[in-house]
Each structure stands twice: as structure tokens, then as C-alpha cells.
Amino acid sequence: MSTIVRAVAVIVTAFAMLGSASGLSVANTDPLAGKTYKEASSIVAGWNATPVINTVVGDHLSTDQCMVVTSQKSHRQIDGAQQTVFLLNLYCNDGVAKAGTPGNSAVSPQAKLSAKNAKTGEWCSQPAQATNDKCAEFCSNHDGLCTVTF
């Protein structure tokens, strides 16, 4: 009898672990992941919180251009007052690896986002987009991707 109970417990545990693991990998609920540090900092400030760089991988980009890989909400005490902070883990290599330059694999989600942003920057750089508010916002948040000044 106890052998059957143990076997059932092992099976139930295995299914529970599989269900939770697949649930974690299906959707990334981190609202800051995939944003540049500049974009994420602005969003965090809008939440009346403070962005704090937690970790940095790479050194080929300026901090504002680094990609937020993950973030975590936390709290700290300063002068007796509790302050909300977001710990940001940054990736600061180029969006896509090139000969002699480290970066993401061309098939990774980060490289695909980098390629999409490059295309958007190219499109927004066209003279016909000079009055496009969306392009102005994009270009102000993606230094170096647009060749026009809004």
C-alpha cells in the first residue's frame, strides 16, 4: 500500500514540476525585459521607484543603450524611509555578434529585437517621417539608430 502511495506521489510531483516549468518558459512577464536601460529607467521613474543596476554583462555599449535582460522589484531603507527600487540586469554587448565583436546569436530573441530596432531606426530616419511622433519617441530612446534629429 505505501509503495502505491509513494509511486502516486512521485508521479503527481513530476507532473506538477513539468507544469510549472513549462508555464515559466512560455511567457516572460517582466515588463522591463527587452527595453534599453534608458527606456527602463524612464518607466521605473514613472512608477515612483529608483532603477539600480544589479549586474552588467559586456562593455561594448553605453549604459543607456544596454538591454535589460531581467529585473526584480525590491525595497531598501534610506534614512528610515522605505524606498522601492528595481534591480536591473543589463546586457551591454552588440545586439548581434559580428566578426571580432561579441553579441547575441543571430537567431536569439535579443538579436531579432536588435534587428527590428535597426529597421525601425532606418525607417524613422527617412525625411517623410520627420513629423512622426512615434518615430520621435523611438529615436529619443534608441541613441544611434536614427540619423535624423527630432
Results as ranks from 00 to 15, higher is better:
residue 3 T to P: 03
residue 8 V to E: 09
residue 9 A to M: 10
residue 10 V to P: 13
residue 10 V to R: 12
residue 11 I to Q: 15
residue 12 V to H: 04
residue 12 V to C: 09
residue 13 T to H: 13
residue 13 T to V: 14
residue 14 A to H: 10
residue 18 L to S: 12
residue 18 L to Y: 14
residue 19 G to V: 14
residue 19 G to Y: 14
residue 20 S to W: 07
residue 20 S to L: 08
residue 22 S to P: 06
residue 24 L to V: 08
residue 25 S to D: 11
residue 25 S to R: 10
residue 27 A to N: 10
residue 29 T to I: 13
residue 29 T to N: 11
residue 31 P to N: 08
residue 31 P to E: 06
residue 33 A to K: 00
residue 33 A to M: 01
residue 33 A to S: 06
residue 35 K to A: 02
residue 40 A to P: 01
residue 41 S to V: 04
residue 41 S to P: 03
residue 42 S to C: 11
residue 42 S to M: 12
residue 45 A to D: 14
residue 45 A to M: 09
residue 49 A to V: 00
residue 50 T to W: 06
residue 52 V to R: 01
residue 53 I to S: 05
residue 54 N to W: 07
residue 55 T to P: 01
residue 58 G to Y: 02
residue 61 L to V: 00
residue 62 S to T: 08
residue 63 T to L: 11
residue 63 T to D: 13
residue 63 T to A: 13
residue 66 C to Y: 00
residue 67 M to S: 05
residue 68 V to G: 00
residue 69 V to S: 07
residue 69 V to D: 05
residue 73 K to W: 09
residue 73 K to F: 10
residue 74 S to K: 05
residue 79 D to R: 03
residue 79 D to Y: 07
residue 79 D to L: 04
residue 79 D to Q: 09
residue 81 A to T: 09
residue 81 A to E: 10
residue 82 Q to V: 12
residue 83 Q to G: 07
residue 83 Q to H: 13
residue 87 L to S: 02
residue 88 L to Y: 03
residue 94 D to E: 15
residue 95 G to K: 04
residue 96 V to F: 00
residue 97 A to E: 02
residue 97 A to L: 01
residue 98 K to C: 07
residue 99 A to I: 07
residue 99 A to L: 15
residue 100 G to Y: 06
residue 101 T to W: 11
residue 101 T to E: 08
residue 102 P to K: 04
residue 103 G to Y: 02
residue 105 S to P: 03
residue 106 A to G: 05
residue 106 A to K: 12
residue 108 S to M: 02
residue 109 P to A: 04
residue 109 P to L: 04
residue 109 P to W: 00
residue 110 Q to H: 07
residue 114 S to W: 03
residue 116 K to H: 12
residue 116 K to V: 08
residue 117 N to Q: 13
residue 118 A to V: 08
residue 118 A to D: 05
residue 120 T to Y: 09
residue 120 T to M: 11
residue 122 E to F: 09
residue 122 E to G: 12
residue 126 Q to T: 10
residue 127 P to W: 06
residue 127 P to S: 12
residue 128 A to F: 06
residue 128 A to V: 14
residue 128 A to E: 12
residue 128 A to S: 13
residue 129 Q to N: 15
residue 131 T to V: 08
residue 133 D to K: 12
residue 134 K to Q: 15
residue 134 K to D: 13
residue 138 F to C: 05
residue 140 S to P: 04
residue 142 H to Q: 07
residue 143 D to L: 08
residue 145 L to H: 01
residue 146 C to E: 00
residue 147 T to I: 06
residue 148 V to M: 05
residue 149 T to A: 15
residue 150 F to K: 02
